[in-house]
C-alpha cells in the first residue's frame, strides 16, 4: 500500500488497530480451513467442566461401593451394595428424602405463586421508576448471599425478634417461628424468588400487550385473561423457573442447616454429615448418587412431559 502525505496524518482509532491485531492473531492460530471445528472449539471449556464432573461422579460411584471398616476407619476392599441397603433400610433416610422432596415441591409452588405476579407487574408497568424499584428490591437480598440472609431471618424471626415484637403488639404470645419445616421452606422461597422472577420476566415480555387487549375485547376480564392467556403462554418460563427452583431447593444445604436447626435435614445435610462428621465416605457417596439420580429423573420426566421447547431451547413446536 502506498501512502500519501495525507494518509500519514490520519490514524485509525486504537481499538480498531487492536481488533485488527487480534483478528490477524486468530487467523494464524486458527486458520480458515479449521472453520468446521470452530463449534467444538467453543464447546471445549464446557466439555472440560462436564468431563471433570463425570470423573468425580465415577469416583463417587466407586467409593459408594465400599463399606467403612469400623476398626481401621478406612474404606473396605470389597465391592458391596451394603451402603445402599443401609439407606433403604433406614427410616431416618427415608424421612430425609421425603422431607427434601416435599420441601422442594412446596418451595416451587410458593415461589412461582409469588414470582408470577411480581414478574408480571415488573414487565408490564409503564413507569420506569416502578420497574427500577422492583428490580432493586429483588436484587438487594440477591447480593447479600445465602448464609447472611439465613442469619437475618434467624434474627428477625427469633423469639425476641421483630416479627414476635409485632405479634406482641396485638397481644399474641411469642411464637416459635424457627427450627421447623415451615421456616426452612420460608427461607428457601425467600432465597429462590429472584431466580424465579428473572426466569419468568423474559417469558412474560414475549407476550405482546396486543394479545391481552384482544382477550379483553373478546370478553375476558383481567382474571380470565390471566388464566386463559397469560399463564398458558408463560408456560415455558414457568416450567424453566420451576426446574431451577426445584433442583436448587432439593440440593440446598444452608437453609435446612441454619433455619432447621439440625432437626430438618435435607439430603445435602445428610451427605455432609457422612463426609465430615462420621467420615463414612462410602455411605455419603451412596447418598450423593441417590440425590443425583433423583434430581436427574425428576428433570428428565418434566422435560419429557413438557418438551425441551418449553425451556425456550427450540425443540418441538
Amino acid at each position: 500500500m502506498t501512502r500519501t502525505p495525507d494518509q500519514d496524518s490520519f490514524r485509525y482509532p486504537l481499538v480498531w488497530r487492536l481488533l485488527d491485531g487480534l483478528n490477524t492473531a486468530a487467523d494464524v492460530l486458527w486458520p480458515r480451513k479449521m472453520a468446521r471445528f470452530t463449534g467444538w472449539l467453543l464447546l471445549a471449556p464446557a466439555l472440560l467442566l462436564v468431563g471433570i464432573l463425570v470423573i468425580s461422579l465415577v469416583q463417587i460411584a466407586e467409593s459408594s461401593l465400599h463399606v467403612l471398616d469400623r476398626s481401621t476407619f478406612m474404606p473396605g476392599e470389597d465391592y458391596t451394595l451394603a451402603n445402599y441397603a443401609t439407606i433403604a433400610d433406614s427410616a431416618t433416610y427415608a424421612r430425609v428424602l421425603w422431607r427434601s422432596l416435599l420441601g422442594a415441591a412446596l418451595t416451587v409452588v410458593f415461589t412461582l405463586l409469588l414470582a408470577l405476579p411480581y414478574s408480571y407487574v415488573m414487565v408490564r408497568t409503564t413507569s420506569a421508576l416502578t420497574r427500577k424499584a422492583l428490580l432493586i428490591v429483588l436484587f438487594l437480598p440477591f447480593f447479600i448471599g445465602q448464609v447472611v440472609r439465613a442469619y437475618g431471618i434467624l434474627i428477625v424471626m427469633g423469639r425476641s425478634g421483630a416479627v414476635n415484637d409485632i405479634l406482641g403488639l396485638v397481644g399474641i404470645e411469642p411464637l416459635r417461628l424457627l427450627f421447623n419445616f415451615p421456616a426452612v421452606v420460608f427461607g428457601l422461597v425467600q432465597y429462590m424468588l429472584p431466580f424465579a422472577v428473572l426466569m419468568l420476566a423474559p417469558a412474560l415480555t414475549a407476550i405482546p400487550r396486543e394479545i391481552e387487549a384482544a382477550a379483553n375485547s373478546l370478553g375476558a376480564n383481567w382474571i380470565r385473561t390471566f388464566r386463559h392467556i397469560v399463564i398458558p403462554m408463560a408456560k415455558p418460563g414457568l416450567v424453566g423457573a420451576g426446574l431451577v427452583v426445584g433442583t436448587l431447593s432439593l440440593t440446598d444445604f444452608a437453609m435446612p442447616a441454619m433455619l432447621g436447626g439440625g432437626s430438618q435435614d435435607f439430603i445435602a445435610n445428610a451427605i455432609y454429615d457422612q463426609f465430615f462428621r462420621t467420615a463414612d465416605q462410602g455411605l455419603g457417596s451412596a447418598l450423593a448418587l441417590i440425590l443425583v439420580a433423583l434430581g436427574s429423573v425428576i428433570v428428565g420426566v418434566i422435560i419429557a412431559f413438557f418438551g425441551a421447547g418449553t425451556l425456550g431451547m427450540g425443540g418441538k413446536k
Binding site: 405482546p208 396486543e210 384482544a214 382477550a215 375485547s217 373478546l218 392467556i229
Partner: peptide, 13 residues
C-alpha cells in the same frame, strides 16, 4: 365490539 388487531393477536397456544 369485535376487533381485528394490527398484528392479529391470535392466541398461539
Amino acid at each position: 365490539i369485535g376487533m381485528v388487531f394490527q398484528k392479529l393477536a391470535l392466541f398461539p397456544h
